[in-house]
Nucleic acid binder design. Structure first.
Lengths: 329, 329
DNA sequence: TTGTATGCGTTATCAT
DNA sequence: ATGATAACGCATACAA
């Protein structure tokens, strides 16, 4: 009883159980071992409240059981949700998540690649906007929403179908004259397909379509000017709006409020993402919901999958529509 | 050039530089070493793009350079912000964060304590609602918003001052008759002081005060009944509301909208937390802003501080008021 | 089947 | 000042 070991090791367990070190290891890893020995070891484990040191384990295996998640921030509710589900999916597989919030900053994204090296992560899941991110060939990478390279799988929502769905929903709800509102990084990423899908849907349902696309530098207030341009004696020309994200929808709805245009009476609004205020039950707006938890699962699954051969280049997951008070239903 | 080592080790560097292993270690750790040797080692490090394996380092030092963050979720924007800043503060000190989202579930909180053991974290930062959380005596713990035990530091906003500030602000803006709205876990935690501070402020400024406190089971819609009870010919008796969180404020404002009571014309509303929609510039409502980044820094500082003796039992950080459209200013 | 010895990447103690 | 060596906790190939 001289030195009370703060956290017991396999050696302590072996000593306690009166068996050899190797035997303990086998029991821990579920390898075949004599019944009597196993019981004694298990007792000792319980008695000492022993837990394997997964870092030492990793050292042996040349793995760290850690995956990095590269993401702009945790403030955007969509990202926050992604963080949550990816973390959970990793933990379930006894992996740790190294959270790297880049703040849309390319410099930071590169910096994190370094941290990633220092931490010897086993893989990286990245939602990144850096057009020319230089990443290690050797380390597994799964991209969200953006195709990054020939052998790097990309996971995204079915953005095209989502755009289409928005058009159909607006048509079903009686809209005739709709607008598509988007603020876009010029990078081509999967979410860009929302536009194509929406156009396609409008065509199919004979909706008149106007588009307003803000480019990198332009302030979001440009949308207000856009609306004013399409106003005739106080009434907006459009009866439906499809905003490329819930965030845009949120800003747009505020603008409409200031202009005394009622939502959904005068104009119906559909967003994209499925963001909930405070993570609680209700949506900010009627919206196309991304299957965040499925996206997370898929990313982790692909990342940890051993065989490179079976990794598909692009996985699109189905979206759903949800009512959030900004449409007539 | 036979086997191309995927990630170089100290040994490789030593070989490359033609020096002994120990020498490399010293250079890496900034210990004194001959100038010529140092240069050769540094060259080799650059050439091989060597990074220390912090897990092996940890194995020697019996540290993991990992701290766990126990928090209900990342969906609530206030928590999301906390996650972001704590992660950043840890990373700055070359620590990793193990994110443990408990979903307000006591069972999960305990489960994570186990994961925490398996992962041999060096410390825990916890924002937890488990009244009788059983935690290891041996591992450093810093609590957010709740005093948990005699030797466990607690970090929080100055909630009392925040409550006071809300009362003063409402008084300054012309309110005479105000209400305090709270939904409360019965647990006594620092945020409860918001009530005391507000009462204090109302007294000082001669405001008539009504309180409505929802208990654990009651649905938030109870507030709507409360309002209807204090309605006389369509006008609300109150001209100011202090909601204990921005979330409550958000829900309350929606209710008021349905009742055709205008904010801030008919009634002004102040929340608490300083939550921003989508993490962008503007606040959901006029609010008392918690200094999230300071809280995060303080937690990490206290956690990693060696000397137990100098750890204060409770640290309260100053709050500020921010306009968010739901007050007359 | 069980036990022993070696090595994973580092650091620290010791001779040199 | 520099270099060899042991030890950290664990897994495993090999010997008993």
């Amino acid at each position: 009883m001289r030195k009370k070991n703060p956290t017991p090791t396999m050696k302590d367990v072996a000593l306690e159980a009166g068996v050899a070190l190797g035997t303990v290891s086998k029991v821990i890893n579920g390898l075949p071992v004599g019944e009597a020995y196993r019981l004694r070891v298990e007792d000792a484990v319980k008695k000492l409240d022993y837990h394997v040191n997964s870092y030492a384990q990793g050292l042996k295996a040349s793995k760290t059981y850690t995956a990095a998640l590269l993401i702009p921030n945790t403030s955007n509710p969509f990202f926050a949700k992604l963080v949550h589900y990816i973390n959970t999916a990793l933990l379930k597989r006894r992996y740790r998540m190294l959270l790297c919030t880049t703040d849309y900053d390319s410099r930071m994204e590169q910096e994190y690649i370094t941290i990633t090296k220092q931490n010897k992560v086993d893989g990286i899941i990245g939602l990144t906007y850096n057009p020319n991110l230089h990443l290690e060939e050797t380390i597994p990478f799964v991209s969200i929403d953006r195709s990054i390279g020939p052998h790097i799988p990309c996971v995204a929502s079915d953005n095209f179908a989502g755009g289409q769905m928005a058009a159909e929903k607006l048509a079903d709800l009686g809209c005739k004259n709709v607008a598509f509102l988007r603020v876009g990084s010029s990078l081509d990423s999967e979410p860009n397909k929302r536009k194509a899908g929406f156009e396609n849907g409008c065509l199919a349902r004979d909706l008149i379509l106007t588009e307003k696309i803000l480019h990198d530098g332009e302030p979001i207030s440009e949308f207000e000017d856009f609306f004013r341009k399409h106003l005739s004696d106080g009434k907006l020309k459009f009866d439906g709006l499809f905003c490329v994200t819930d965030y845009i929808a949120y800003e747009v709805i505020k603008m409409l409020g200031k202009m005394d245009i009622r939502v959904p009476e005068d104009v119906q609004v559909i967003g994209f993402d499925g963001v909930q205020a405070f993570g609680s039950g209700d949506y900010f707006c009627s919206t196309i919901v991304q299957p965040v938890s499925d996206i997370a699962e898929m990313c982790v699954e692909l990342l940890l999958q051993e065989s490179m051969s079976t990794k598909p280049p692009l996985v699109c997951l189905p979206v759903t529509y949800a009512y959030g008070g900004t449409t007539k239903e």
